[in-house]
């Protein structure tokens, strides 16, 4: 039986006392409990941090956003400053999972959730990520898998909030008993070619204590869009976060991140280059969408995701620039 001890903490210091190899921090418990029930992880200790007050709260200032990692997705989605200034983030938070899950799920946990792959998430398969010698998705059922960076392991990272946070250039503050360090979200996730056994840079004795989003430059506009097979409670097949720094109709710079295209959230650098210095219109947006998927290497069953990313990138650019009021395929019927 998966026997474990449960430690209830009220301060970061107390939590850090317990965080070590074999123990794991539990916030909302959404992904962790699934992984435990499915026999994928068996921590010897759960360190409950839900009641650690200092890890809650949203602070806004001229420097930007400082998010307590225990901020729930519902709180992110409902925050007026985030809705106005960091629109892509509130959009992403409001489209994850279900209302019930968003009330429990935290932004820190959303970043820390494990990747999606039904081979990884079934105890029937001892895949590369679990120390096995095979990626079952490569020749198996791979319709939901990665279309980029998928040569070794084709899992996808489904964090909805990682996509806009990365596009906004967010940083993650990690604290251990040795001290604090800050890691750009860009460098937070570890690609399969770097390591198969670590998915993030977070060490077993570290805790996410803050998520910092720099204040956007003047003229910044952003948007996030997600396509699943259905709208109610579904994982994305494709999602994108777009942050544009606009000067009139001209795009000074673009930051575009694709969600479930690869084993980690991925900057669409080729698309960003297409937009820089250009007037945003449908043609440039489509050109950027095409550039975003130029390097795709789809597997046997997920070629359709190339088309989906092409679409989600171009439409999210138009949404961010304000030239599209809502995605025509969004909830509640098509425009």
């Amino acid at each position: 039986m998966n026997r474990f001890t449960f430690v209830d903490c009220t301060t970061v210091a107390e939590a850090l006392d317990h965080l070590k190899q074999g123990s794991v921090a539990k916030a909302g418990g959404i992904d962790l409990l699934d992984l435990m029930k499915d026999g994928i992880v068996s921590p010897s200790m759960l360190v409950n941090i839900r009641r650690v007050k200092e890890l809650h709260g949203i602070e806004t200032s001229e420097q930007g956003l400082s998010l307590g990692p225990l901020t729930t997705l519902s709180e992110l989605a409902a925050h007026p400053v985030i809705q106005k200034t960091y629109t892509a983030l509130s959009d992403a938070a409001s489209h994850a999972a279900t209302p019930q899950i968003r009330n429990m799920a935290t932004v820190g946990g959303n970043l820390m959730q494990r990747q999606r792959c039904w081979y990884f998430r079934s105890s029937e398969y001892n895949c590369l990520r679990k120390g096995g010698s095979e990626c079952f998705a490569q020749k198996g059922e791979n319709q939901y898998h990665a279309i980029m960076g998928n040569e070794i392991c084709a899992m996808v990272h489904p964090s909805s909030t990682a996509v806009p946070l990365m596009a906004f250039g967010a940083q993650v503050e990690l604290t251990s008993k040795k001290g604090k360090r800050t890691v750009p979200l860009n460098e937070f996730y570890i690609r399969p070619d770097e390591s198969l056994l670590d998915e993030t840079v977070v060490k077993s004795d570290e805790l996410i204590t803050r998520i910092l989003v720099p204040a956007p430059a003047a003229g910044t506009r952003s948007a996030y869009q997600k396509y699943g097979e259905k709208e109610s409670f579904d994982w994305p097949l494709a999602d994108a976060g777009v942050v544009l720094v606009m000067d009139g109709n001209t795009c000074r710079s673009a930051s575009i991140v694709m969600g479930v295209a690869a084993p980690t959230p991925l900057h669409a650098k080729a698309a960003e280059v297409v937009l820089a210095g250009k007037t945003i219109d449908e043609a440039t947006a489509r050109a950027a969408g095409k550039a975003a998927v130029d390097s795709a290497t789809p597997l046997e069953q997920n070629g359709y995701k190339v088309q989906l990313f092409h679409t989600v990138v171009y439409r999210t650019i138009l949404l961010a620039s304000g030239q599209l009021k809502r995605d025509p395929s969004a909830v509640g019927g098509m425009a």
Partner: peptide, 21 residues
Amino acid sequence: DRGKGYMLNADLENYKILGAR
């Protein structure tokens, strides 16, 4: 899964049923 004969979506997460939206 053709490789192992295992039903990969025997749950209500990956077996997708219409929802409110």
